[in-house]
Amino acid sequence: MREIHTDQIISALEGLFIDANINLSQFVLDAFNRAIDREESPVSKEVLRELITNAEIANKENIPICQDTGLAVTFLEIGQDVHIVGENLEDAVAEGVRRAYKKGYLRKSCCDPFTRKNTGDNTPPIIHIKIVPGDRIRIVVLPKGGGSENYGEVRMLVPSQGKEGVKSFVLEMVKKGGPNPCPPIIVGVGIGGNFETSALLSKEALMVPFGERNNDPVMAELEEELLEEINKTGIGPQGYGGTVTALDVHVKSMPCHLASLPVAVNIQCHAHRIKETIL
């Protein structure tokens, strides 16, 4: 049994959420540069150049890339040979988030669903925990803005709708969002499982590295076809019209009930903030 103190988890999360919100990862900048080469619209090329300048300013001035520093989505993969000591794990994650959003001057965007009263410290975070082999903890943070999250949906398709049904659902969501979720977007598609796992799969799909394809050739082909069709919609960067509407599309799938075909679509904005560490 390897012991990991919750203080280590708190300080890791504090650092990760600040870093994610201020320093856009190089792989996202590389994707913007490739998008400039592919984009045909001069207005949209200008927008993509603004995004690169924006990331440079955020990094240099130590301010967030986007004012919507998101709900604090946190994935913990905990090795089954780890013994966590200290306080309650969920309290520790919340404390890490609380410290990051205060110290990093990040916006607190969490409120009561009806009164809309702000909780004041961006807690509670959204926590996903998986138990995995080993004696380490992998922490991935994905601060997620409201604008893109609002264009996600879970739909229980009829099995006979099959692959074509999935494609038309994803395209419907992308077109419905249009400029609102801040294209060029990243599209996560979760297929199978049940109602709630399809949603989680779609979120996990957003964390797959750009360019990587699903191991299942059918799903890999679906990713390619969706990316091509999304980029033919003409929505383009910021919705100002163009040929780069999505930077990538990822599909995650698992078996489902005989009677069901659950599908979830989760959309991520171009400000794809994701950082990780291993304790």
Binding site: E50, L51, T53, N54, A55, I57, I63, D68
Partner: peptide, 13 residues
Amino acid sequence: FGATGGAGALLSK
């Protein structure tokens, strides 16, 4: 008018 969404650092300047 549209301001570039997600360009919060640039717009702050």
